[in-house]
């Protein structure tokens, strides 16, 4: 706490990125990661703390040219309650429903979940299934400059991303899934409520005549970053969803993941879970 020299609450993106350009800043959104981490000493504040909560450009869920834009400040509760999202991307609402507790959801933002870059971040897996991109803004010397990149390229390690220190994550965008798109997300914690994922598994694709196409698989808490499951996807792409395919895909998950053992679970157990949960998801997809 004693490290903070300046506290800013900008009320425009312009003001926020300018302040950030001065360097040595920490951004604060819902604070549900930042506060516990600074309290335990896992990380410390930079000299300037910028509270982003009043920046209007970072708010709101909107539909624009065939896609959906989630402002970085969209809270998990917002995601859960948004009717547009529920219809267009129920998998996201589903993930929100298994996220923490009401109190935490009311504060926790989707931007914070992504920037915190935990391999167990629960909003990330469904966003990977939806083919999301992130939008970043910074001061280029004269004006606000923005860039976008696919979400799956954003993460570089536990807690690490491609975001430059002065960059603000402004939004997440993804195309509205088309006809036949189906997506599942399963979060496994050791108890049903208020738990950090031990593993999470997401699988999506377009279902046509018993086969899955344009398959996306993603796994949480089983690698240094939330990962796409390329081997799993290959085992499924264009194949009839038979029990053989399902078994092969479930086996293929093991090539996609590299879990570690920690206080929450062993690597062995994480592997078992990913295999079992994948089988269950695929069985469910094949029969529904």
């Amino acid at each position: 706490m004693h490290d903070i020299k300046r506290y800013l609450v900008p009320d425009s993106l312009d003001e926020a990125v300018r302040a950030a350009a001065e360097g040595d800043v920490t951004f604060l959104a819902g604070g549900t990661d930042l506060m516990p981490q600074t309290r335990t000493g896992a990380r410390s504040f930079s000299s300037t703390l910028i509270n982003l909560k009043q920046v209007p450009e970072l708010r709101g869920v909107s539909r624009e040219n065939g896609g959906i834009r989630l402002g970085a400040l969209t809270t998990v509760t917002d995601v859960l309650n948004d009717v547009v999202l529920r219809k267009a991307a129920p998998v996201l609402s589903q993930a929100a429903d298994h996220f923490a507790s009401d109190q935490v959801r009311n504060s926790a933002t989707i931007g914070g979940n992504i920037c915190n870059a935990s391999p167990a971040g629960d909003m990330i897996i469904p966003l990977l299934l939806l083919g999301a991109v992130v939008e970043l803004a910074s001061w280029n010397g004269e004006a606000v400059g923005t860039r976008t990149m696919p979400l799956e390229e954003f993460f570089t390690g536990p807690g690490k991303t491609q975001r430059e220190p002065g960059e603000i994550l402004t939004a997440i965008r993804f195309p509205v899934p088309g006809e036949g798109f189906t997506a599942r997300f399963v979060k496994f914690g050791t108890r049903p409520a208020l738990d950090i994922s031990v593993v999470s598994v997401g699988i999506a694709g377009v279902k046509e005549n018993g086969t899955l196409r344009r398959v996306r698989a993603a796994f949480g808490a089983v690698a240094p970053v939330p990962v796409r499951g390329r081997n799993t996807e290959a085992a499924l792409e264009g194949k009839l969803l038979t029990s053989d395919t399902i078994r092969q895909a479930s086996e293929a998950t093991q090539e996609d993941i590299s879990p570690i053992s920690d206080v929450r679970a062993s690597a062995w157990y994480r592997r078992e879970l990913v295999r079992t949960l994948t089988t269950r998801i695929l069985n469910d997809v094949s029969t529904s």
């Binding site: 516990p36 335990t40 050791t190 108890r191 049903p192 409520a193 208020l194 738990d195 950090i196 206080v263 929450r264």
Partner: peptide, 23 residues
Amino acid sequence: LVVENGKVMNPSFRDYKLITAPE
């Protein structure tokens, strides 16, 4: 309470898991 080499590994309610209402 996970104790490894004498150290408490989970000194928070995030990883020390009490029963919650749904259970």
